[in-house]
């Protein structure tokens, strides 16, 4: 092995660390861009780091009557967010040793386990808003699930596997794979799924402090101290993970390290961050261009996502599109 070749294990750890350490940064940059769109100066880019650091220094308050689940949930969620980057192409275009551990559905399950544990913990507390958020999160999570499944089916029909690495490789193989109708529809559907899962407009106003409109955010209202820090950090990681899948699996799997050489792997990090900021900007634009749907109208959004994903599968299955 040449001197400048990194061992796959190191690269895999590096992928995890990239997500772990840069997630708050991306959140900060996106928040800043969003503020600019709204004509504000906005917070410092590093503000999320300060928030997390501050929360780690605070004491932890636990509601009466809540069990060990309440404290375990943030840890479980955080661990889940550390597992998913092992499965997806963050920095490299070739699969790493643990890359075969789970497919797209596996990754989705791990992500929903995180969401589930937070929801269970929220349901444990006495806070009515937390419980409301918990039930809403489970409801809408279940409603958006079919769309995600059909996106997976699309990938499976195109690549005959459902491993994210192969979908990325298919997109890299030729441009005509990217612009084929089924792929475009799948991308749109997945985009809608990401909008919903990251709690963005038109599903949720992520920066709002109005509890009645909250879905995901409401679940963490009862938390304080280090567990809240973990949850906030986890939320930033989840957002970045979804960006990674959107970029490196579906839309633009270019700029990834093709070999194990230190240089190319290190170079892949800033390229990836730049792409993530690009996607974040797109989300910020959408955030500023649309208004939030009424809660009872959210099913329309989910139905639209399902429609697009379903058409992707049909186009493939019936027309080879």
């Amino acid at each position: 092995m040449a001197a400048d070749q990194l061992s796959p294990v190191v690269i895999q750890v590096l992928q995890d660390l990239t997500i772990l350490f840069f997630a708050p940064l991306i959140s900060g940059i996106v928040a800043r861009i969003e503020a600019r769109f709204q004509g504000r100066r906005g917070p410092r880019i590093l503000q999320p780091y300060y928030d997390i650091a501050k929360l780690f220094r605070k004491e932890t308050l636990v509601p009466e009557d809540s069990s060990w689940v309440y404290l375990a949930a943030p840890v479980v969620a955080f661990t889940c967010y550390l597992i998913v980057p092992l499965l997806i192409p963050v920095l490299t275009s070739y699969p790493l040793p643990l890359g075969y551990m789970g497919d797209i559905l596996g990754g989705a399950f791990v992500l929903s386990l995180a969401g589930f544990s937070v929801s269970v913990a929220a349901a444990e507390t006495d806070g009515p808003y937390a419980q409301l958020g918990s039930s809403r999160a489970m409801t809408f999570g279940a409603l958006i699930e079919p769309a995600l499944l059909f996106v997976t089916f699309t990938v499976a029909l195109i690549t005959t596997t459902d491993l994210p690495y192969f979908e990325a490789a298919a997109a890299r193989a030729s441009l005509s794979q990217v612009v084929r109708p089924a792929h475009l529809l799948a991308v749109v559907a997945f985009f809608l799924v990401v909008l919903s899962d990251t709690g963005r407009i038109p599903v949720e106003t992520h920066s709002s402090t109005l509890e009645l409109g909250m879905i995901d955010e409401a679940r963490t209202l009862e938390y304080s101290g280090p567990p809240l820090a973990l949850l906030k950090w986890g939320a930033a990681m989840k957002q970045l993970i979804l960006y990674v899948i959107l970029i490196n699996v579906f839309t633009a799997p270019w700029g990834l390290a093709g070999s194990r050489s230190t240089g190319s792997v290190i170079l892949a990090i800033p390229i990836f961050l730049a792409k993530a900021v690009g996607v974040g900007t797109l989300f910020a634009i959408i955030d500023n261009s649309f208004s939030k749907l009424r809660l009872f109208k959210l099913t329309e959004f989910m139905a639209a996502a399902f429609l697009v994903a379903g058409l992707a599968v049909l186009a493939l299955y019936l027309g080879g599109g």
Binding site: L157, I158, T159, T160, T161, F166, A169, A170, A173, S174, S176, Q177, V179, R180, P181, L316, G319, G320, G321
Partner: peptide, 14 residues
């Protein structure tokens, strides 16, 4: 390693 891809449609078809 790389599985067979479903061939993309021609430009006209797509």
């Amino acid at each position: 390693m790389m599985p067979a891809l479903l061939a993309p449609p021609s430009t006209f078809t797509g």
